[in-house]
């Protein structure tokens, strides 16, 4: 049964390489996208932390800024 799934009548190499390529592409795209997201989010947190209290208050008044700060790891 397992041999049949692996070999697939001699087409196993083609089938498995097509599925592997697809999954590797998915994982790579996900990792790259997540890395970009994390980088921008970290940059935002550092910049926000460096603001003086008055400016931080102004920035915090925006819902989106509060949301970015609250979503520590949302993916």
């Amino acid at each position: 049964m397992i041999n049949e799934i692996i070999n697939m009548n001699g087409y196993g190499l083609y089938v498995w390489s097509a599925f592997t390529f697809t999954l590797v592409s998915f994982v790579s795209l996900y990792i790259v996208t997540k890395a970009h997201y994390t980088k921008e989010k970290n940059k935002f947190e550092v910049k926000f932390g460096a603001l003086d209290p008055k400016k931080a208050e102004v920035a915090r008044s925006q819902v989106i800024n509060r949301e970015i700060l609250s979503t520590t790891n949302n993916i």
């Binding site: 989010k41 935002f44 926000f48 800024n65 993916i75």
Partner: peptide, 26 residues
């Protein structure tokens, strides 16, 4: 679903990028 997932992550990244520039202007 996977393309939706990547789209959401990319879109959120773009919005945070804009907000990063907004913090510079404060």
């Amino acid at each position: 679903l996977f393309s939706l997932l990547i789209f959401l992550m990319k879109y959120n990244t773009e919005l945070i990028k804009i907000k990063n520039k907004g913090l510079d202007r404060l």
